[in-house]
Design a protein around this nucleic acid. Structure first.
Lengths: 369, 369
DNA sequence: CTGTTAGCGCTTTCAG
DNA sequence: CTGAAAGCGCTAACAG
């Protein structure tokens, strides 16, 4: 059979690796079959496949990523962005691009697509990609999570794997989701705000819209911690990420609660709100805790208008989603439909520079990777 | 010459990669020579080497890590730990082990050594390893940075690359160093403490010993920010990481400054200090900001004895050092003798669970890598 | 459904 | 100092 194999002869390579040759030998079959079985290809009898899988597990076989990516066909996936690219999404994109660059070494190619923000169009694009033989897709849909889930469920994308970042779909139509740990972020904001205003003070929550799952858990975390800290919640305001609404919202909030001590701005798009608040002369008076770090926010913190912001790590979200989808596609890594939550971080003036640096392309390489 | 090469024929592999074949062809030499030159092997004439390097650069050649690690001899390096393994070093070790496991795929093998903490012994061990053909070493020496630097400079470890974590050596005797951004950590502590105590309050700094470079920059950062925030610095206390000294130190501090409002505990080994302070009845009275997260510290924060702690990410320090040393060894990545500084993070009660989880082996996979 | 075989891109003997 | 050739471990045609 595989007689050509004469181990322990050449190269300085140490000879201890367990390969498909070993398991083929053990089972008296060819390496090709082993390879096929291990990669879940169709053309293997159930019987044989079972024996192979079992042997592999028992012998503790672990495929060599190097060898496989050297011979494998290129894996392809697409990234679907909604049309509206704001700072946050842009950071996610940068994270994806960064990781893609590293994974090119392993024979991955990725196409970035911008899609008009309507669940129907997203769905049909996905179906098209699937038909075109794409192996996977990362979806960043801004709206219509429920509707899109429904559509995807109906069409059953043959073999294409879908992952989501920040915005999520139903568990059964995607492999995994990566987002920030909203619950903890909300609680951190609550704790900081209470520290800033003192106990028993009056605080408000300003957010995008609560129908979004991420925003909802952030809000819940905040309210929970606020309660714990004895903050009085004056109200919850949604501005639907529309500047006009946010502008108006700022006025409404202070009109309704002239004695307000603090506000948690739970979404990244609160610039207008902040600016308006400052215009109205509330700069130092109301303590602000915000979300994320983007150029405008850096100014706000530096000037003291905003005391702290909770960084949600969009860059790493993109990066991780890319890597995980790759591992799923190539190595069959499973995620059980789980959400992968990244740690939010507190940014105040003294560590602001670290996050400012991340925004530039400097990136200084660190962590992680 | 390399006639066996017939590109664009087989496999589904896309055909666009620039390989050593291309550059060999271009220069009318063999791929073996190209490979040798690119890897800095001895046996290549200066003339040829120069031509090859230049061609490679011009053509934008980038070696395939997969292909190389598939054929390469195993790279070996050693990790030298000081005898005293406390929580912090242990986390570094875990980080190293984690990364080593991932890099085994790329033919890396690592030995962990525990060394008696004396510069002379460290040096002679390093010289021995170098003679044994080790390609690199990561050093975590606890004391005698200056002396060890001197010894290493004298002996000139043939070709072995040395990297350091946390504790550093002189730039010319190691390739790079990884540590936490002490300066920023100190400033963060300063800002938080000032927020907790209010402006103009009296605060003290308690640290291990200031001869260590990391601790020194942390202290400087703290003092700078304290000044900025208008904190009055009552004093700087060193306890040399000795429990007995720390115990005593707690008493000294409150005796000398009964009106103290806050303390920054700048090193990880301040448990005794904290406990003693609590015993003396100063639990709620003096605001504490500490360093790092380890089991005992988690309790302190949960109970409110310590308000915040600055996490210095030892796990990632170990991990990154390992990866970078690997990249240096295998891909010739250069660091210009630089320090690689990781971002310190603020831990308060509401995000404590995230860091607690990191300590368990759960690690939940996230980031980074 | 299974086996044979030709590489992926690179490094390392082994001969000159 | 340089070249030829044999693999590293795996996958993808291509035959059966």
């Amino acid at each position: 059979m595989n007689e050509k194999r004469n181990r322990s002869k050449v190269s300085g390579t140490k000879n201890d690796r367990l390969t498909i040759y070993d398991i083929a030998q053990e089972l008296h079959i060819s390496i090709a079959t082993v390879s096929r079985a291990l990669n879940g290809k169709e053309d293997v009898s159930d019987e044989t496949r079972k024996r192979i899988m079992e042997a592999a597990r028992e012998m503790g076989y672990k495929a060599s990523r190097s060898a496989s990516s050297l011979s494998r066909k290129e894996k392809r996936f697409a990234v679907l962005f909604p049309e509206l690219i704001h700072d946050y999404n842009n950071e996610i994109r940068r994270g994806i691009e960064k990781e893609v660059e590293e994974l090119r070494e392993y024979h991955l190619s990725v196409d970035m697509l911008t899609i008009q923000g309507d669940p129907e169009i997203f769905a049909s694009k996905l179906r098209e990609l699937s038909a075109d033989g794409y192996d996977g897709a990362i979806v960043l849909s801004s709206v219509g999570e429920a509707r899109l889930s429904e559509l995807l469920r109906e069409m059953k994308l043959s073999r294409m794997a879908v992952a989501t970042v920040t915005t999520d779909l139903d568990r059964d139509v995607r492999v995994f989701n990566v987002q920030s740990n909203g619950g903890v972020a909300g609680r951190m904001a609550g704790e900081l705000l209470s520290l800033l205003t003192g106990p028993g003070a009056k605080a408000a929550l300003v957010t995008g819209q609560l129908t979004s799952q991420v925003h909802k858990s952030t809000a819940e975390g905040f309210l929970e911690e606020a309660r714990r800290q004895g903050l009085e919640i004056a109200g919850i305001y949604e501005h639907y990420d529309q500047p006009a609404k946010a502008y108006e919202c700022a006025e409404t909030v202070i009109r309704e609660h002239p004695d307000l001590s603090g506000i948690y701005l739970a979404t990244a798009n609160s610039v207008t709100f902040c600016s308006r608040l400052a215009e109205l002369g509330y700069a130092g008076k109301i303590k602000l805790v915000a979300s994320d770090v983007f150029p405008k926010m850096i100014e706000f913190i530096r000037s003291g208008l905003v005391y702290a912001t909770i960084f949600q790590n969009p860059f790493d979200q993109g990066r991780l989603a890319t890597r995980y989808l790759f591992e799923h596609l190539v190595e069959g890594r499973e995620f059980g439909g789980n959400r992968i939550l990244l740690d939010p971080q507190i940014v105040i003036r003294s560590n602001l520079e670290l996050y400012e640096k991340k925004l530039l392309d400097v990136m200084s390489e660190d962590v992680l990777f």
